[in-house]
Amino acid sequence: MLSFIVNKQRVNLDVDPSTPLLWVLRENLGLTGTKYGCGMAQCGACTVHLNGEAVRSCVAPVSRAAGKEVTTIEGLSPDLSHPLQRAWIAEDVPQCGYCQSGQLMSAAVLLREKPQPTDEDIDEAMTGNICRCGTYPRIRKAIHRAAGMMTKGEAR
């Protein structure tokens, strides 16, 4: 039995400890906002937070989450009020949208550690998150916009 917290809710699961965390999130817990992209930590679509750090859930065994706290896109905010979510909507970032939950989760770690990121900071944080639609310029713009909101005290 594995026990950990997902989006502030404790879960106890009887699963194979080597199961990828992504499978457990999607199949066992129904949290389908996190996407399966490449399955080999190459695209970033499956990014979630494990104790606040970005993790590719497609390759992280669920055993790694035992006793820890997982946050998915569903838990980033209860009401789409996270500055990044608001900036994403304001900049109309997504095209197909498939990679965007992973993009947002990576961007959230970036802003926590660097509240006023430069373009270089954004490149260093986000290069592992691939977007086939090429929404990178809008992602960059939205991250800067969210950083601005947080500076003005609009952060939640």
């Binding site: 970005a54 590719r56 961007a107 260093e124």
Partner: peptide, 8 residues
């Protein structure tokens, strides 16, 4: 760094 740590 930030969202690209080794343990990611």
């Amino acid at each position: 760094v930030t969202a690209e740590k080794c343990s990611t």
